[in-house]
């Protein structure tokens, strides 16, 4: 959804009757929508409205789903990583232990190796999903839309005065 405040830059800058209104402007003095998704540029011949539409709920859901799945799988990798680290710490050594290599140590050794493999695989899959989500975020970003409004101003004398009319086409 885009909320637009259409006003000349001078008015938006806070002069005259617009003083006190909190109409946001960009650094060039152009009016901006409240949510910053559109800017309005007014000159003597046309009004240019540039806006960026919101992502669709489906797009947001897919991106969030992929990123969430990536984080979940990455978290699983972290679990296996930490478990493998603990098990490895129980058997790894550089000094003489004065202990025999028992089936219990062999089981810990095997489990640590397996879990390190699981961690690597989970990190790879989780990372790939996160990269995919990041790429999709960039690729599916809605493109900026530009609407140009041409004002038409007319003036005609009337009895005792004049009539001024304005129309916009776009």
């Amino acid at each position: 959804m885009i909320a637009l405040v259409i006003a000349p830059a001078s008015a938006a800058a806070g002069s005259g009757g617009m003083a006190g209104n909190a109409t946001p402007t960009d650094e060039l003095g152009n009016a901006k929508s409240d949510d910053g998704t559109a800017t309005v540029q007014v000159n003597s011949t046309q009004i240019v409205i540039k806006s960026t539409p919101d992502r669709t709920p489906k797009n947001i859901a897919i991106l969030a789903g992929v990123a969430g799945a990536g984080a979940l799988v990455g978290g699983l990798g972290l679990y296996y990583h930490l478990d493998a680290r603990d098990l490895s710490g129980k058997v790894s050594t550089a000094d003489f232990t004065n202990r025999p290599w028992t089936p219990t140590l062999q089981a810990a050794y095997d489990k640590a190796n397996h879990e390190a493999t699981y961690a690597t695989v989970a990190y790879s899959i989780g990372g790939a999903l996160l990269v995919g989500a990041a790429v999709a975020l960039i690729v599916t970003a809605p493109s900026e839309e530009t609407t140009i409004i041409h004002p038409h101003v007319g003036a005609a004398p009337t009895r005792g005065g004049a009539a001024v009319s304005a129309a916009w086409s776009f």
Binding site: V91, T97, A112, A116, T120
Partner: peptide, 28 residues
């Protein structure tokens, strides 16, 4: 992101057991 994958991948690889020669006596 790719850097993170590499770092985590290497981190996981570093969690593999490392037993130096001559540190354990022969088991059953």
């Amino acid at each position: 992101t790719l850097g993170l994958i590499v770092v985590f991948g290497l981190g996981a690889a570093a969690c593999r057991p490392d037993v130096a020669y001559g540190t354990y006596e022969c088991g059953p």
